[in-house]
Write a protein that binds this DNA or RNA. Structure first.
Length: 438
DNA sequence: CGGCTTTGACCAGCGC
DNA sequence: GCGCTGGTCAAAGCCG
């Protein structure tokens, strides 16, 4: 604490010096990085030194020049999402201490100073291009329930869409930089397009971790340059390339996305079925399309059951019982995707099961890839899917990632149920082997 | 009364 | 410089 105090004094002094030098964001960064170099973990003022530079005047006034101690989390684009995952999974990330600034003050006071702080936060998160994750899903409600608390702060008519676009801000923490935009699809009003931007800087409710992981993992895919070079063409790249091939209307990935509530050590190694990446806009955006195509008649694989054969759906067979996993709006939303999509698809030709299956437990809908492949001859599988499956399942990193995911997943609910955990992991390994062989 | 939504105003980025 | 567009602000009103 003494050392930290000294550090803060030093920073405060430097800050004052900075005020006399208007030119200075660059210098400030230099200072910040200097301290980073000299210390494994740089201690800085509450929000972050870099952030303070931009709105320091206002912020200093707003905070009554109060200095708070926190770990300086300099999130680079890659670590950003990882940190978000960490923060979402536990109240770690500098421990509860990191949240001190918001916890120290009554929410109302925080809200009052939030505007000032927000600017610095925005600056902190100001990447050259903010990554966005857009999710298209059928939803009847005004906005989909992802477990987070949101406050609407604006609404605009967007060009080319008769439906207004609503802007929401995360209110779980007053300092949270996460925004989301919600807009109905112009072509199909039943489709809700939710676009997330930024990563949560606070522990998330259990019910919101799934979505946070999904979006941050998706964002990581865009942000992590290593993805393009990893393992030759790259694990994800190969997966994506097969996705791309099947982004055609005949591909039906409607049950593909089901990340459930797990964290993963390398979140950018998620596999995003039916995703598309666009960097045409100022904000690079990855779109996760969770809507099923309206008709099945165009399928070029008429005999092929409309399973998502590239669906790496880890959650189903390995899911802990409901008693272990607390019910979450998002997980139920995941169920929503499946059950509703199922209903929809039944109405359009019966993709999956008999019509009575609507009331069946979701396990039936969450067939893992191996079960899926076992259910129909491999000859129906397009080569690219087989290739992608092999590429993925033979990748040692995939195994470790899966193991980590499962460990976290199982570990989240049942504390220390190692027996079950091992069993689950064994099953996972076995399934993977079977998949690889097939 | 606090929190939320609504909505017009404002601002910044971009293309022409 | 101007207009368009996306995004945000903030005052007013609503609601529990």
């Amino acid at each position: 604490m003494e050392q930290a105090r000294e550090e803060n004094k030093m920073l405060k002094f430097l800050d004052i010096l900075e005020q006399d030098k208007p030119e200075d964001a660059t210098n400030a960064k230099g200072v910040s990085s200097q301290s980073e170099e000299s210390e494994p973990l740089s201690l800085s003022l509450g929000i972050s030194f870099k952030g303070k530079i931009k709105g320091k005047r206002k912020q200093d006034e707003g905070m009554d020049r109060g200095l708070t101690l926190g770990l300086d989390i300099n999130l680079d684009p890659v670590d950003h999402a990882e940190a978000a995952n960490i923060s979402s999974s536990a109240s770690s990330l500098g421990g509860g201490k990191e949240e001190e600034p918001s916890e120290m003050w009554p929410p109302s006071k925080v809200l009052k100073t939030m505007k000032n702080v927000d600017k610095s936060e925005a600056f902190q998160n100001d990447q050259p291009k903010k990554t966005r994750v857009s999710i298209r899903a059928r939803c009847d409600t005004q906005t989909m329930n992802d477990g987070c608390q949101w406050r609407k702060y604006g609404q605009k008519m967007a060009k080319g869409n008769p439906c207004p676009r609503a802007y929401y801000r995360c209110t779980v923490s007053p300092l949270c930089p996460v925004r989301k935009q919600v807009q109905r699809c112009a072509e199909d009003m039943s489709i809700l397009i939710t676009t997330y931007e930024g990563t949560h800087n606070h522990p998330l409710p259990m019910s919101a971790t799934a979505m946070a992981c999904t979006t941050s993992a998706a964002a990581s895919m865009l942000q992590c340059p290593s993805l393009s070079s990893e393992h030759g063409h790259g694990l994800v790249n190969s997966a994506i390339s097969s996705i791309t091939k099947f982004s055609a209307p005949n591909y039906n990935p409607h049950n593909a996305l089901n990340f459930s509530t797990y964290q993963i050590s390398r979140p950018h190694q998620f596999y995003f079925p039916n995703s598309s990446i666009s960097s045409l806009n100022y904000h690079p955006t990855i779109t996760l399309d969770l809507t099923a195509p309206p008709t099945a008649s165009n399928s070029s694989f008429p005999h092929m059951p409309k399973y998502s054969s590239t669906n790496l759906n880890f959650s189903s067979d390995f899911s802990p019982p409901q008693s272990i996993m607390p019910p979450s709006p998002w997980s139920s939303y995941s169920g929503y995707f499946n059950s509703r999509a199922l209903t929809h698809n039944i109405n359009h030709g019966g993709y999956f099961l008999n019509p009575g299956s609507q009331n069946q437990p979701l396990e039936h809908l969450h067939q893992p890839i191996c079960m899926t492949n076992n259910n129909f001859p491999q000859r129906f599988l397009p080569d690219s899917i087989i290739a992608a499956t092999k590429a993925i399942t033979s990748n040692p990193k995939f195994h470790s990632v899966l193991a980590t995911a499962l460990t976290t997943y199982v570990g989240n609910g049942a504390s220390g149920d190692t027996l079950r955990e091992n069993h689950v992991l064994e099953n996972a390994e076995l399934s993977l082997k079977l998949c690889s062989e097939k």
